Simulated scan of single mutants.
Amino acid sequence: MASKPVTLKVQPRGKPIPGLPKETKIYIQGSTADLYQRIAADSKSSVHRLRITQGKGTAIPNDKSVTVASTELQDGDVIQVKDLGPQIAWRTVFIIEYLGPLLIHPIFYYLRPYIYTLPTFNPGPSSLQTISFWMITLHFLKRELETIFVHRFSLATMPYTNIFKNSAHYWLFSGVLIAYFTYSPNSPTASSDASPALTYVAVALYIIGELCNLSTHLTLRSLRAPGSTERGIPRGLGFDWVTCPNYLFESIAWVAILLVNRHWSTAIFIALAVGQMAIWAKKKERRYRKELGGKYKKKRFAMVPGIW
C-alpha cells in the first residue's frame, strides 16, 4: 500500500519554465518516472525536455524502476527542473546520420564522369573502387537496419542541435571525404589491384567484423526488455575479451575497408571513429561497475585486447 504523499518544492534551474508549479505532491514509494510525468503535465511540457535534480545537482532519473524514496527525498525538500530545449529521438538521429554516406557514395560512384576530369577512354570504376563502394554501402545499410530493428535506447531523445554535430561526422568524413578520394581517377584504388591476396584477406576480415558486430548488437538488445532502461550484464562472443566488443568488431570492419581503398582519407575517418569509440568504451566500463556493482566482472581492457 502506498505511503502518505510528500510535498516537494519545485524551482527552475536556468531559464524560467512557463507553468512550472512551485510545489508538487508525490507518493514516496512512487517511481521517479511518475514525478517526471507530474511535473511535465503541470508545466505542459514534453517529459523528454526535463531534467530534475536535487541537492548539489544530483540527477533524478526518469525511471519506472527507481522509487522516490530511493533518492532520499523528504517532505519539504527542493527539486530543480531544467528545460533541455527541443528534443529529437535518438533513433531518428541515427537514421539521419547513416543516411549521409548511403546517399553520398552512390553519387560519387555513379556520377564519376560528371564530378571528375576523366581520361578520354574511361573504363569505369576499377575493381577496388567497386569493392570499396559495396563495403561502405553495405556497412551503413546494416547500421540503418540495426537502428530500426535491433537497437534499444536507454534515453528516448537528445537535444535536436546534436543532429548537426553528429551528422557532420558521418556526412562529411565517412561521406564526402572518403567518397571524393576513393572514386577519383587519381586514387590508389583507380589502378589495377596489385595485391589481390590482400584484397581477399580484407574482404574476409570485413565479413567477419560485420557479422561479429551484428552478433554483439543482438546480445545487447537481449539485455533490455522493450520500454525498459534496466541494464543487464552482456555475455557471449567478444564480451569475455573486452567491455565493448561491438566497437572492436566495428574497428576491424573499417580496417578491412582501409586495406581495400588504401587512402589517407579513410585512415582519418578511422582515427576519429576509433578514438571516439575508445572514449565511449572506457565510460561504459565505469558505468557497468557503478550500476551493476559486484555482479559485473571488471574487464582488463575496454575495447582492444592487450591495448585498450
Rank of each mutant, 00 (worst) to 15 (best):
L35V: 06
T92K: 04
G57E: 01
G14H: 08
A69V: 02
A40H: 02
Q11N: 13
P18D: 14
A89C: 10
L103V: 15
L118R: 00
V47S: 07
P16S: 14
T117G: 09
N62F: 05
G76T: 07
I52W: 00
I104Q: 01
D77C: 06
L103W: 03
I104S: 01
G57Q: 06
K82L: 11
D77W: 02
Y36S: 07
G19L: 10
S31P: 12
T58N: 07
Q29M: 11
Q74M: 11
K44C: 13
I26Q: 00
R112T: 02
G124A: 11
Q54W: 05
I95H: 06
Y109R: 01
H105T: 04
P18E: 09
L103F: 15
P16T: 10
A41M: 13
L20D: 05
T32H: 00
L20Y: 03
V78Y: 00
D77E: 06
R49S: 09
P86A: 11
L128D: 00
P61W: 09
Q74W: 04
I28P: 01
K15P: 03
Q11F: 10
L50S: 03
D83T: 03
N62G: 06
P125S: 10
R38Y: 10
G14S: 13
N122A: 11
K22M: 06
V47N: 08
A89P: 00
P12F: 07
V66P: 05
G85F: 04
I52E: 00
I96F: 08
T71I: 12
Q11R: 14
Q54G: 11
S126C: 14
V78F: 00
Q54R: 15
E72T: 10
L50Y: 01
K22T: 09
G19F: 01
Y98I: 04
Q80N: 12
S45D: 10
S65L: 11
L35D: 02
Y116N: 05
V78W: 00
E72S: 12
G85W: 01
L73N: 00
I115Q: 04
K64F: 06
R38V: 13
E97V: 07
E72L: 15
F121E: 13
T67M: 08
L128F: 02
H105E: 08
W90E: 03
S45C: 15
Q29R: 12
R91S: 05
P106H: 02
I96V: 15
T58M: 07
A59H: 08
Q37S: 15
L50M: 09
A89R: 11
S31N: 11
P125H: 04
K15I: 05
I96L: 15
E97N: 09
P119A: 14
N62S: 12
Q80E: 12
K44W: 09
S43Y: 01
I115L: 04
L84C: 09
